[in-house]
Design a binder for these strands. Sequence first.
RNA 1: GCCCUCGUGGCGGAAUUGGUAGACGCGACGGAUUCAAAAUCCGUUGCCUUCACGGGCGUGCCAGUUCGAGUCUGGCCGAGGGCACCA
Length: 865
Amino acid sequence: MSSYEPQTHEPNWQKIWDAENCFAAGAADDGREKYYVLEMFPYPSGRIHMGHVRNYTMGDVIARFRMAQGYNVLHPMGWDAFGMPAENAAMEKNVHPRDWTYQNIDTMRDQLKSMGLAIDWSREFATCDPTYYKHEQAMFLDFLEAGLVERRESIVNWDPVDQTVLANEQVIDGRGWRSGAPVEQKNLTQWFLKISDYSEELLNDLEGLTRWPENVRLMQKNWIGRSEGMELRFDLKGAPEGFEHLDIYTTRPDTLYGASFCAISPDHPLARKLAETNEEMAAFLTECAQRGTSEADIEAAEKKGVFTNIQASHPLDDSWMLPVYVANFVLMEYGTGAVYACPAHDQRDLDFARKYDLPVIPVVLPEGAAAEDYEIENDAFIGDGKMINSDFMNGLTPAAAFQAVAEKLETLGRGKRKTNYRLRDWGVSRQRYWGCPIPIVHCGSCGVVPVAKSDLPVTLPEDVSFDKPGNPLDRDIDWKTTTCPSCGGDAQRETDTFDTFIDSSWYYARFTELCENSATDAKSVAYWLPVDQYIGGIEHAILHLLYSRFYARAMEKTGHLHLKEPFAGLFTQGMVIHETFSTPDKIFVTPDEVTQTEDGQHVLKSDMSVAINVGPVEKMSKSKKNVVDPTNIIAKYGADTARWFMLSDSPPERDVHWTDAGVEGAYRFIQRLWRLVDSHADQLSTLANLADKHEQAVHPQSEADKALYKTVHQALAATTDDLNRLAFNKAVARIYELSNALSSAATNDGISKPVLFQGLSYLIIMAGPMIPHLAETCWQRLGHQQILAKTKWPVADDAVLMDDVITLPVQVNGKKRAEIEAPADAGEDDIKTLALADERVIKAIADKDIRKFIFVPGKIINFVV
RNA sequence: GCCCUCGUGGCGGAAUUGGUAGACGCGACGGAUUCAAAAUCCGUUGCCUUCACGGGCGUGCCAGUUCGAGUCUGGCCGAGGGCACCA
């Protein structure tokens, strides 16, 4: 018996699928029900990694499964090809970002093809293709016309040495990653998409996304952050001219009598004004600027502030003056960039108050506490209770107090109720070369002028250098200089390019048809969208998915789409993780460089005397070097082994731990499955006339036949159900069970050939979406004429799915004491009689009285004694 | 810091609606085959206790709800994802 050689069979089947055009999506009017399965497209970083293998294997299983079920399946692939790494490569390796990107795409396309994915490659594109971004530019102009775009000032991280804008990840401990210079903040006029106009709609429509994970919807809900509060006006004393009032936003006006101080953001206009004349303030603002713009850094920093020498009068009592601080924990982007603080009932306020010795007045009394001796120590109280120290609100609940104080403040004209959202508008300007040019011209006399649609695309200049700091587009005078589309005079091009999240906010629509003259084709998007199953990493739960939801709405408003929610079903997969290995001098090494001695010690392959430290299991990343290259795995074991391992064991939404033992196990199963089919194929070849008729009813006669038939059909029903629910790991377990059952049954003389033949055929069909190359080989070996990729998914025989006799556990006081066999349809009384006849039950109950009898049909019996 | 998720044998995990905890796989151990090894096949395998029958314990920790909790509630500990210019 020969062993199965993936290296021969896999490329062969890939050629056949290609030649037979198996995976091309059908026309939009071919009459079949459509199914659009999409995996988040990759950034062409150089080579595919195991995360890609996992993601694309899952999508492929769904695509193949739906194809077999008769759907018209769209399963495309493309490249999220603009972005920073290409510019970094240009700087480090002196290659053009375009060349680097397209070379990477070529490499990665070959790698993906070697996985045997059922992809319609005719729809492939890269977001850096002018034929793609041309439409992106045109749509932006439509958005501009529709009032979805704004231009305004916004802060960026600025590296004063490299003279360049830094991404948050390029700011390390407040310094530029290359120059090491302390980061400054800089105000730039930038383009924004008005996603905040859709806050309410994006929030409300989450409810309709029933096939999205609950946690993703919750994360988006919290991100949008709707809150009901009040905007209050405080009169200021001692403030510079033009700053007579301070507007603050609060969700807790009920705690206003617990006010202790006011705080404004370091980016607040008042803070900036003060810094002009106050050195201490200027120094503090500089210090705050060095944290960069990342919210995580700001929030995690120690609460600090500087007193402004300004006092604010309390809106409910003009004689009560509150000191105004500039504080590093107040965000300019949220509310009005200013807050009043009630330390007793807000932890951040409390930390700040303790540091600067400010009053802490409790105004909400928890239930059970006494007003006289209630004091706040190190934990603010944020729970419910009764109002105290609060004049007219005393005795009310905080909710009732909110209403009372809101009414009073509105009557006094000191404030108004306001619904606020945390969600901010989407800044889409990037001061970088490798992105989609923003199709705008700046004219001295006409101002900001859109490029004429007939002049699109605005393409990137070819001849650029990355040896100088800053944005190459800004330095390229030839490219920059143009004429004004409006007046024909001298003008300059916009030198910012788009955030790459724009590119990925509509690619799903573009896949439905690569039409030339418009972004989308109405008929094609109407047929294919929404995406039925979208699959990608949980790390995209908020930004990419929220931007895409907004973008679909913007496209709908401008006539490019007919729907608002682009992804009907979403699945977020876990990461691929691996141990980290390092040498005694703490240098990371790849798993390839490590081997194990006989006694299990990890050592360096090249020098076995060097002991290797095995570190924590983490997400595979280049920096930790804990990566396994899929190409090596596919070369050694074949794509089917890699795919099978990715689907086995770990639930798809959780992390999967890559282990050599696991891969070996997967490979052994591939071989075992081949042996099972190969060793019985000859004796079944007399059934050649049955070859493509495995769907026809078989008639099990003997007990062994009936048992196997039942096992096969139960496995088919369960696997179909598992695949419908994306429970790949469970489907894998079913296939193991069925192959074990078939392997035992095959040696049993009582099994008739048609039953065994159908069992083996079904087993191969079930395994087909997961390990397609081996499955095709087995399918052919069994004598089937048509290839598996074109074979229909069978339907299980309902008649044998239910068992006649079931085993019921019997509990006494909630502890399992026995099991009884009973007819599946037995009633409560019969079951009780049966159970009480069991000696283990009799023993457990002994002479105690039965107080209660619980019977859950098909599940359990419980005697309470 | 804030939001979200996860925690079950030696390991990955199963248990679909609150109803038999540990399916399936890996590893380990024992056996068959082999001159030998690899591969393959058969069997055992949560922990403690018992000669055995059996009994007890057990889903990160502490409480609670329930006839019954891996599953629900509250608190705690640990790990991970996101935090708006990484993609």
